[in-house]
Simulated assay, not measured.
Amino acid sequence: MTDKIKLISSGINVQPLYWALMNNPQLWNQHTMRTESPDSPHFGLDDIWIRYGKSDAAMHGEAHDSEWYEASDVLDLKPFLRDLMHAVGGDVMGGVLITRIPPGKTCKPHQDLRWHALEYQKYGLQIASAPGQAFCFEDVQFETKPGDLFWFENQSMHWVPNPTNYERITMIACIK
Protein backbone atom coordinates (compact mmCIF):
# COMPACT_ATOMS: atom_id res chain seq x y z
CA MET A 1 0.00 0.00 0.00
CA THR A 2 0.94 3.63 0.24
CA ASP A 3 0.69 6.35 2.83
CA LYS A 4 -2.72 7.26 1.33
CA ILE A 5 -4.63 3.99 1.64
CA LYS A 6 -4.06 0.82 3.67
CA LEU A 7 -5.91 -2.46 4.03
CA ILE A 8 -6.65 -3.01 7.75
CA SER A 9 -8.58 -6.27 7.58
CA SER A 10 -10.41 -8.51 5.14
CA GLY A 11 -13.12 -11.13 5.40
CA ILE A 12 -15.53 -9.14 7.59
CA ASN A 13 -19.02 -10.59 7.20
CA VAL A 14 -20.95 -7.78 5.48
CA GLN A 15 -23.82 -9.97 4.23
CA PRO A 16 -26.23 -9.05 7.06
CA LEU A 17 -25.61 -5.35 6.40
CA TYR A 18 -25.97 -5.82 2.64
CA TRP A 19 -29.34 -7.57 3.07
CA ALA A 20 -30.50 -4.96 5.59
CA LEU A 21 -29.75 -2.32 2.95
CA MET A 22 -31.66 -4.30 0.30
CA ASN A 23 -34.64 -4.57 2.67
CA ASN A 24 -34.66 -0.82 3.46
CA PRO A 25 -34.40 1.09 0.17
CA GLN A 26 -36.28 4.02 1.76
CA LEU A 27 -33.10 4.93 3.66
CA TRP A 28 -31.24 6.04 0.53
CA ASN A 29 -31.11 9.78 -0.20
CA GLN A 30 -33.04 11.07 2.79
CA HIS A 31 -30.20 13.61 3.10
CA THR A 32 -28.87 14.90 -0.21
CA MET A 33 -26.49 17.67 0.87
CA ARG A 34 -23.52 15.88 -0.76
CA THR A 35 -25.27 14.55 -3.86
CA GLU A 36 -27.81 17.10 -5.10
CA SER A 37 -25.61 19.77 -6.71
CA PRO A 38 -24.21 19.10 -10.20
CA ASP A 39 -21.03 20.81 -8.95
CA SER A 40 -20.51 18.21 -6.21
CA PRO A 41 -18.05 15.36 -6.83
CA HIS A 42 -20.76 13.12 -5.31
CA PHE A 43 -23.51 14.23 -7.74
CA GLY A 44 -25.54 11.30 -9.02
CA LEU A 45 -24.46 9.00 -6.18
CA ASP A 46 -26.60 7.80 -3.27
CA ASP A 47 -26.08 8.23 0.48
CA ILE A 48 -27.47 6.95 3.75
CA TRP A 49 -26.46 9.13 6.68
CA ILE A 50 -25.84 7.02 9.78
CA ARG A 51 -24.21 9.65 11.98
CA TYR A 52 -23.35 13.32 11.48
CA GLY A 53 -24.03 16.73 12.98
CA LYS A 54 -27.55 18.09 12.77
CA SER A 55 -26.72 21.77 13.35
CA ASP A 56 -26.32 24.55 10.81
CA ALA A 57 -22.60 24.61 11.69
CA ALA A 58 -22.27 20.95 10.70
CA MET A 59 -24.09 21.52 7.43
CA HIS A 60 -21.60 24.28 6.61
CA GLY A 61 -18.55 22.15 7.40
CA GLU A 62 -17.78 23.74 10.78
CA ALA A 63 -16.92 22.09 14.12
CA HIS A 64 -19.76 20.04 15.60
CA ASP A 65 -20.64 16.91 17.56
CA SER A 66 -22.01 14.06 15.47
CA GLU A 67 -25.35 12.50 16.37
CA TRP A 68 -26.98 9.21 15.40
CA TYR A 69 -29.54 9.29 12.60
CA GLU A 70 -32.57 6.96 12.48
CA ALA A 71 -30.88 4.75 9.87
CA SER A 72 -28.39 3.61 12.52
CA ASP A 73 -31.22 1.91 14.41
CA VAL A 74 -32.99 0.58 11.32
CA LEU A 75 -29.74 -1.09 10.20
CA ASP A 76 -28.69 -1.94 13.79
CA LEU A 77 -25.22 -0.43 13.28
CA LYS A 78 -24.36 1.11 16.66
CA PRO A 79 -22.82 -2.04 18.24
CA PHE A 80 -20.84 -2.82 15.08
CA LEU A 81 -19.53 0.74 14.81
CA ARG A 82 -18.53 0.86 18.48
CA ASP A 83 -16.58 -2.38 17.98
CA LEU A 84 -14.97 -0.94 14.86
CA MET A 85 -13.94 2.23 16.70
CA HIS A 86 -12.27 0.21 19.46
CA ALA A 87 -10.64 -2.17 16.95
CA VAL A 88 -8.82 0.73 15.25
CA GLY A 89 -7.87 2.33 18.58
CA GLY A 90 -10.34 5.19 18.37
CA ASP A 91 -11.96 7.15 21.20
CA VAL A 92 -14.48 9.31 19.34
CA MET A 93 -16.89 8.41 16.54
CA GLY A 94 -17.57 11.18 14.06
CA GLY A 95 -19.68 10.99 10.94
CA VAL A 96 -20.68 7.72 9.32
CA LEU A 97 -22.31 7.31 5.97
CA ILE A 98 -23.02 4.60 3.48
CA THR A 99 -22.45 5.61 -0.10
CA ARG A 100 -23.52 3.86 -3.28
CA ILE A 101 -21.97 4.44 -6.69
CA PRO A 102 -24.33 3.17 -9.39
CA PRO A 103 -23.02 1.28 -12.42
CA GLY A 104 -21.19 3.56 -14.84
CA LYS A 105 -20.95 6.48 -12.38
CA THR A 106 -17.91 8.02 -10.68
CA CYS A 107 -17.27 9.80 -7.44
CA LYS A 108 -15.29 12.57 -9.13
CA PRO A 109 -11.81 13.77 -8.12
CA HIS A 110 -11.89 15.86 -4.96
CA GLN A 111 -10.14 16.64 -1.68
CA ASP A 112 -11.94 16.67 1.67
CA LEU A 113 -10.68 19.79 3.42
CA ARG A 114 -13.51 20.86 5.75
CA TRP A 115 -13.28 20.63 9.55
CA HIS A 116 -14.75 17.12 9.88
CA ALA A 117 -12.40 15.66 7.28
CA LEU A 118 -9.40 17.25 8.99
CA GLU A 119 -10.45 16.23 12.52
CA TYR A 120 -11.00 12.49 11.99
CA GLN A 121 -9.32 9.49 10.36
CA LYS A 122 -11.42 7.87 7.62
CA TYR A 123 -12.12 4.15 7.39
CA GLY A 124 -14.02 2.40 4.63
CA LEU A 125 -15.82 -0.92 4.88
CA GLN A 126 -16.58 -2.41 1.49
CA ILE A 127 -20.11 -3.81 1.44
CA ALA A 128 -20.51 -4.50 -2.28
CA SER A 129 -18.04 -4.18 -5.15
CA ALA A 130 -16.90 -5.79 -8.37
CA PRO A 131 -13.53 -6.17 -10.12
CA GLY A 132 -12.67 -2.98 -11.99
CA GLN A 133 -14.01 -0.63 -9.33
CA ALA A 134 -11.16 1.17 -7.58
CA PHE A 135 -10.43 3.82 -4.96
CA CYS A 136 -7.95 6.07 -6.78
CA PHE A 137 -5.25 8.58 -5.92
CA GLU A 138 -2.86 10.14 -8.41
CA ASP A 139 -0.21 7.50 -7.65
CA VAL A 140 -2.25 4.41 -6.64
CA GLN A 141 -5.46 2.52 -7.34
CA PHE A 142 -6.88 0.15 -4.75
CA GLU A 143 -9.56 -2.44 -5.55
CA THR A 144 -11.50 -3.53 -2.49
CA LYS A 145 -13.60 -6.65 -2.05
CA PRO A 146 -16.72 -7.00 0.09
CA GLY A 147 -15.56 -7.41 3.68
CA ASP A 148 -12.40 -5.31 3.28
CA LEU A 149 -11.78 -2.64 5.91
CA PHE A 150 -9.36 0.08 4.84
CA TRP A 151 -8.00 3.40 6.06
CA PHE A 152 -7.62 6.27 3.60
CA GLU A 153 -6.17 9.75 3.63
CA ASN A 154 -8.95 11.93 2.27
CA GLN A 155 -7.11 15.23 2.06
CA SER A 156 -5.24 14.18 -1.08
CA MET A 157 -7.00 14.23 -4.42
CA HIS A 158 -9.03 11.03 -4.72
CA TRP A 159 -11.88 9.56 -6.78
CA VAL A 160 -13.80 6.30 -7.21
CA PRO A 161 -14.85 5.17 -10.70
CA ASN A 162 -17.39 2.41 -11.22
CA PRO A 163 -17.05 1.32 -14.86
CA THR A 164 -18.89 -1.96 -14.13
CA ASN A 165 -22.49 -3.13 -14.35
CA TYR A 166 -22.69 -3.50 -10.55
CA GLU A 167 -23.24 -1.00 -7.77
CA ARG A 168 -20.44 -0.23 -5.31
CA ILE A 169 -21.51 0.24 -1.69
CA THR A 170 -19.09 1.48 0.98
CA MET A 171 -19.62 2.48 4.59
CA ILE A 172 -17.30 5.33 5.61
CA ALA A 173 -16.66 5.86 9.33
CA CYS A 174 -14.79 8.84 10.74
CA ILE A 175 -12.91 8.01 13.94
CA LYS A 176 -10.33 9.72 16.18
Rank of each mutant, 00 (worst) to 15 (best):
110 H>P: 06
122 K>D: 07
109 P>C: 01
115 W>T: 07
117 A>Q: 04
99 T>S: 15
104 G>Q: 06
97 L>D: 01
128 A>C: 12
128 A>G: 01
120 Y>L: 03
112 D>A: 10
129 S>F: 04
121 Q>L: 05
100 R>E: 13
109 P>H: 03
118 L>T: 07
115 W>F: 13
130 A>K: 14
129 S>M: 04
113 L>T: 14
127 I>E: 08
108 K>C: 07
116 H>N: 11
106 T>D: 09
130 A>C: 07
97 L>R: 15
121 Q>E: 11
120 Y>Q: 10
125 L>G: 01
101 I>P: 00
100 R>V: 00
102 P>K: 10
128 A>E: 15
121 Q>R: 05
125 L>N: 11
104 G>H: 08
111 Q>Y: 00
105 K>P: 00
117 A>K: 03
129 S>E: 14
122 K>H: 12
124 G>L: 03
114 R>Q: 12
107 C>E: 08
118 L>R: 12
110 H>Q: 07
121 Q>T: 09
125 L>C: 05
113 L>K: 05
127 I>L: 05
119 E>G: 07
124 G>R: 08
124 G>A: 11
99 T>L: 09
121 Q>G: 00
118 L>M: 13
120 Y>E: 14
105 K>T: 04
124 G>S: 07
131 P>G: 09
107 C>F: 09
112 D>R: 01
126 Q>T: 13
127 I>F: 05
118 L>K: 14
110 H>N: 06
100 R>H: 00
110 H>I: 01
103 P>T: 15
126 Q>Y: 12
122 K>Q: 04
129 S>Y: 01
132 G>Y: 03
106 T>E: 10
132 G>Q: 10
131 P>M: 02
126 Q>M: 15
114 R>L: 15
113 L>R: 14
120 Y>P: 08
124 G>P: 09
98 I>Q: 02
98 I>V: 14
127 I>A: 09
115 W>G: 03
97 L>N: 15
105 K>D: 04
122 K>T: 10
124 G>N: 01
98 I>S: 05
99 T>A: 09
101 I>T: 11
111 Q>M: 12
113 L>G: 12
100 R>I: 00
111 Q>I: 02
104 G>K: 08
131 P>E: 11
101 I>E: 00
131 P>C: 01
123 Y>D: 14
116 H>W: 13
122 K>C: 02
115 W>V: 06
123 Y>G: 07
